[in-house]
């Protein structure tokens, strides 16, 4: 429908647009990476410095001298625990949604979505009071529980589709072979859904790792993850941008790597299973 040469011109145009967009998307991040390797003079230079003698001093300065390393550990503990809980609690529920039918099922399914869509700020105050009365405030348990409940709906919505794609005959065959219902789910269906479960788990991890508001409100000192530690480094007078950048890089690098890991399932995760990707 378009002749050859104009097609080729469009092709180059499309490539040019794509490449420029990638550059625009990445430059700010690259600038932050560079900043984390700059000394104070290079950082505060009024003419942007693209080449400089790199220093790694910012990393130990903030993680060891300012004792930010426990925040990284908190981030890992919070994200891993909430992800494991999410999958252990959410996957059976998703399997139930995919394999059973009862009045009100779709309403319950929609109910899960509404819990996900609720603005964190509307739940944060009561949760803050609730955890205070339980004595869990300022511990990572509070954040783990908050993240688990908040991300559960994503697991339920995403995993239902993965289970629905596995034919019911598989369950039936496993049960004919003498497996119990639970055995069929654990040893036959779940392994078949493993890629989906993995992708869902990575997405849960990313969401928990990146989350700010709940963690910011629920922990102030001991249980702080990296996201909550970042604002504390930005002060009205004399922010040490090299150190801020170092924390930001440590807080984002795992996510950049994970993005490559789950890119195939990302569409499904980001649309709550509505678009298959």
């Amino acid at each position: 429908m378009i002749d050859q040469s104009s097609n080729r011109a469009w092709k180059s145009f499309a490539w040019a647009v794509l490449l420029v967009t990638v550059v625009i998307a990445l430059t700010p991040y690259v600038w932050m990476v560079l900043a984390s390797f700059k000394n104070r003079v290079d950082l505060l230079s009024s003419v942007p410095k693209w080449s400089f003698t790199p220093t790694h001093a910012n990393y130990p300065a903030v993680f060891i001298d300012k004792e930010y390393w426990p925040l990284a550990i908190n981030s890992v503990l919070i994200s891993v625990s909430s992800t494991v809980l999410c999958i252990v609690i959410g996957a059976p529920a998703a399997y139930g949604f995919a394999r059973s039918d009862f009045p009100g099922k779709e309403d319950l399914f929609f109910f899960f979505l509404t819990t996900r869509m609720a603005p964190p700020i509307s739940i944060a105050v009561p949760l803050f009071l609730f955890f205070t009365s339980l004595g869990l405030i300022d511990t990572i348990y509070a954040v783990v529980i908050a993240h688990t409940s908040f991300n559960l709906s994503l697991v339920v919505w995403m995993m239902r589709g993965f289970f629905a794609e596995i034919p019911r005959e598989i369950d039936e065959a496993a049960m004919m072979d003498g497996r119990s219902r639970l055995g069929a789910f654990l040893f036959v269906v779940a392994p078949l859904a493993a890629p989906g479960i993995g992708a869902t788990a990575v997405l849960c991890f990313i969401l928990s790792w990146n989350e700010f508001l709940y963690a910011f409100i629920l922990v102030a000192f001991d249980g702080r993850p990296l996201t909550v530690g970042i604002p504390g480094l930005v002060t009205p007078h004399g922010t040490l941008w090299g150190q801020v950048a170092a924390v930001a890089i440590v807080a984002t690098l795992p996510i950049v790597l994970f993005t490559f890991l789950v890119q195939k399932q990302l569409v499904r995760g980001l649309t709550f299973g509505a678009v298959k990707g």
Binding site: P28, Y29, M32, I230, A248, I255, Q263
Partner: peptide
């Protein structure tokens, strides 16, 4: 795939980090 995945980095990293990056810029 590679280029489209690179495009996703701004929305995958923590929003707090995004705020910080732009504050620095």
């Amino acid at each position: 795939r590679l280029l489209t995945t690179l495009l996703l980095i701004p929305m995958m990293i923590a929003p707090v980090a995004v705020g910080l990056i732009w504050r620095l810029l």
